[in-house]
């Protein structure tokens, strides 16, 4: 008998790989678009040209070269606006999800590990918080704090920290009861050190999965706030504001609505799929 069981050879196209690479590809594409927008975008996203209004996408009759996905009712290039819109979408989701994740996970870890009054205070806060309808809450918050990137990020963090707190609290409680925590304590580890070096690595896959989900949600929330004109100044192209504008012209220029919608949908889907994939990838037991 061998001392160490050998790992079975890994297949190239397993379910996990599929769940990892497909969303990674799309997110990579969007990230590249966001980073290199000025180099990639074929047109100026803000340039209006009334001679060019409502041009159809490239595969339809009457399209113009250089305006691949057509133009909106002010003659602005849809593709270029989607590319620039990726900047705000990704920036907001990255910052908002990280803020939300760190804050919510920290509270979840503390509540789940220390229990007692710390748990009671945090859990009660979560319950009260979750009684508010989230979108209404977001709109209210931005209305109070004023529009702008900071407000959008704060709104997302203030609404969604409860998701991290709840899930991570439950997982921490399960881990805290494991014998390895006792072993570490007997080995002289301090309570806080045990939490950070023994328990945190075990709940990390869940934190990452939630983080990805949160990035998807942040993209949606930003789009919703743009849609109701409460996000960034209305000059900057965002997917939400494009969808809002496209809605009015759906009967004569459906592409203005459809393409940003696809970008939004694919991005949100990619983030949540990637979250699940990463969770399995990082979990040595599930792998």
């Amino acid at each position: 008998m061998a001392d160490v069981s050998t790992n079975s050879p890994r297949l190239i196209l397993t379910d996990t790989n599929f769940r990892l690479w497909l969303p990674l590809f799309w997110i990579g594409l969007i990230a590249a678009a966001a980073l290199f927008a000025p180099l990639i975008a074929p047109q100026d996203p803000l340039a209006q040209d009334l001679m060019m209004e409502r041009l159809p996408p490239f595969f339809m009759e009457g399209s113009e070269p250089g305006y691949w996905l057509g133009t909106d009712s002010l003659g602005r290039d849809v593709l270029s606006r989607i590319i620039y819109g990726a900047r705000i979408a990704l920036f907001v989701s990255l910052i908002a999800a990280t803020t939300t994740g760190i804050f919510g996970s920290a509270l979840g870890l503390i509540a789940g590990y220390y229990g007692g009054w710390a748990d009671r205070v945090i859990s009660r806060l979560v319950d009260i918080w979750m009684a508010f309808p989230p979108v209404l809450f977001a709109v209210l918050l931005v209305a109070v704090m004023g529009t702008g990137l900071g407000s959008v990020i704060a709104a997302i963090a203030l609404i969604d920290w409860t998701r991290f707190a709840r899930v991570i609290r439950a997982e921490t409680m399960v881990q805290a009861r494991m014998d390895y925590v006792d072993s570490a304590r007997i080995g002289g580890a301090r309570r806080a050190a045990t939490l950070v070096s023994e328990i945190l690595p075990n709940v990390m896959p869940s934190i990452i999965a939630l983080l990805m989900l949160e990035m998807g949600i942040a993209v949606i929330v930003e789009a919703i706030l743009s849609f109701v004109n409460l996000s960034i100044s209305s000059d900057d192209p965002t997917w939400g504001s494009m969808i809002a504008e496209g809605r009015g012209a759906i009967h004569f220029a459906w592409w203005v609505l459809l393409f940003p919608l696809i970008a939004l949908f694919m991005t949100v889907l990619s983030f949540s799929t990637l979250g699940e994939g990463l969770k399995q990838h990082f979990d040595p037991v599930l792998k």
Partner: peptide, 19 residues
């Protein structure tokens, strides 16, 4: 306690940190 004593636990499955 850490200097003087040690534990051999009941369940070897959960007594080692899986990650």
């Amino acid at each position: 306690v850490a200097k003087m004593s040690a534990l051999i636990p009941q369940d070897p499955l959960t007594a080692l940190n899986p990650v």
